[in-house]
Simulated scan of single mutants.
Amino acid sequence: MRITGLEDVQAPIERAHGLPNAHYTDPATIAEENHAVLASTWAGLATGADIPEAGDAVPIRFLGQPLLLLRDDAGQVRVFQNICRHRGMILVAEPRRIEGAIRCPYHSWCYAKTGRLVATPHVGGPGQNSHDGIDRATLGLIEVRSHIWRDVVFVNLSGDAPEFADMHADVMARWTEFEQPLYHGGTGSRFTLDVATNWKLAVENYCESYHLPWVHPGLNSYSRLEDHYHIEAPGQYSGQGSYVYRQLRDEAGRTFPDFDGLSEHWETGAEYISLFPNVLFGVHRDHAYSIILEPVSAMQTREHVNIYYAAPDTDPALRDRNAAQWREVFEEDIFVVEGMQQGRAAPGFDGGRFSPVMDGPTHLFHAWVAGRVAAGRE
């Protein structure tokens, strides 16, 4: 039986193989990959909409690490390790609004929302709240490097990736017309899908249009396979675009307001990209969305979908219809990515082959993962 290696994945698409089964099933391989692909790059963690008000805090476990997403009193979004510097106790167990300081439930050490350690009760003995051996200035919360783009909070756990704006300058320039305020559609415009698959299969399915005629017949009825084009930026992102975007209309013919000043391409155009590693984006003339892929385990992914608009006062009923429409599309993909995950249990599968014409965006993602893992080994 032929064993697929990383060099086979990085080969030209005409002879390349997909990632070996171990990258979807083997804990040791996936742990190595997680460090190279998720922890050492800018990975999507959450959205600013998850913490809309000052003091809002959400505990998140990502790649096994306990993190705390927090909006401070100045409105800045921060990410900290969700542990007290005293004994490593979890600080915030459930999403909540923090009115004053962040207080450890164990020994009541307290931290400002900026992470600064502000109180250490009885640390020097009963009634003695300071001690020469405890330097509060050096014992603040450990902040995780973060960056916000299109309301997605990206984190670099390793702390040594290039600046986000440098790493992703190309896609930021591509969508510079959409650098406008985004207004989250509210509770009805966010939903979560739990999928029994490795997160990478969700990426590689999303970034290609090859599957549309069979998996999305409703969408394909007006935005056909031949109406799509590839988006390929090696080492950064890949995806698909459509020349035929049809705006949602209510019974009176009303639509969502457009983003300001868009070029003619966006009258009927739309684009859908996978920003490596784990965030999926879609942009249209009148709304946009993000999907953050949370790698819950080797074979379990949670998809966090959030939908945004160009104005804060869009029609609630139309927003609900839009969310329902997208949810239907995304749910249609579940049997595919779960089926591919089940297929990775077949020992004779060599990673599969790519259509040289139709699978370019997916091959780019596989090659990027393989390149990151190979570089980590070197």
Rank of each mutant, 00 (worst) to 15 (best):
I51S: 01
D286A: 03
M340C: 10
G269V: 00
L19Q: 11
D8I: 07
Y229I: 01
G140M: 09
D8L: 08
D320C: 00
S290C: 12
E33F: 01
A112C: 01
P59I: 05
Q128G: 04
V329I: 12
A28T: 13
A375H: 14
L318Y: 11
Q300R: 13
L139N: 15
G186T: 11
L157H: 04
R285P: 06
W149E: 07
C207M: 09
G218R: 06
R71V: 02
H216T: 12
E271A: 13
I334N: 10
C110W: 12
T268N: 13
E32G: 07
V195C: 05
P295T: 04
R116N: 10
D170T: 05
A298W: 01
I30Q: 10
E14V: 11
N220A: 13
T120M: 06
S146F: 00
Y245D: 15
H86K: 14
S263V: 02
N21A: 11
V92M: 12
P59N: 14
E328H: 08
T268S: 14
G159D: 13
D166R: 01
N322H: 11
G44E: 05
G360S: 04
R372N: 11
K200A: 08
R15D: 14
L248W: 06
A196H: 15
E94G: 10
L68Y: 06
W199S: 12
N82K: 11
A288V: 02
S290P: 04
S355P: 07
E338S: 03
G352D: 09
D151E: 10
E232L: 07
H147E: 13
G371W: 07
G18H: 11
R61S: 14
Y289L: 05
Q128I: 13
T176V: 05
V329E: 13
E271F: 02
E267S: 09
T138Q: 13
F191K: 03
E294D: 15
Q342K: 10
R145S: 13
L262V: 09
P126T: 07
V244R: 12
F62P: 09
Q10M: 15
T29A: 15
H147G: 09
T255M: 02
E94T: 12
D315V: 01
A310E: 04
T192S: 14
R285I: 08
V373E: 14
A233P: 03
D350K: 00
T25Q: 13
V144Q: 11
H265D: 12
D56Y: 04
V118F: 13
S263M: 01
S146I: 00
V171T: 05
P217A: 08
R319S: 10
N198H: 10
F191Y: 15
A370M: 08
D26K: 07
E251T: 02
A370S: 14
A54Y: 09
V279N: 05
L69I: 05
H23D: 09
R97H: 15
A375C: 12
V329C: 09
F349W: 07
I273C: 03
I231L: 15
A43V: 04
V336C: 04
Q240Y: 04
H216W: 07
V37W: 06
W266Q: 03
M358L: 03
N34G: 09
E7S: 13
Y183V: 04
R97Y: 09
N322G: 03
A161S: 07
F256G: 08
E208F: 02
L280E: 10
Y237M: 00
G343Q: 09
L91Q: 12
A57N: 08
A31R: 08
I142M: 14
G339Y: 12
G5R: 13
L117M: 08
W368F: 02
Y308M: 06
Y222S: 15
A196Y: 14
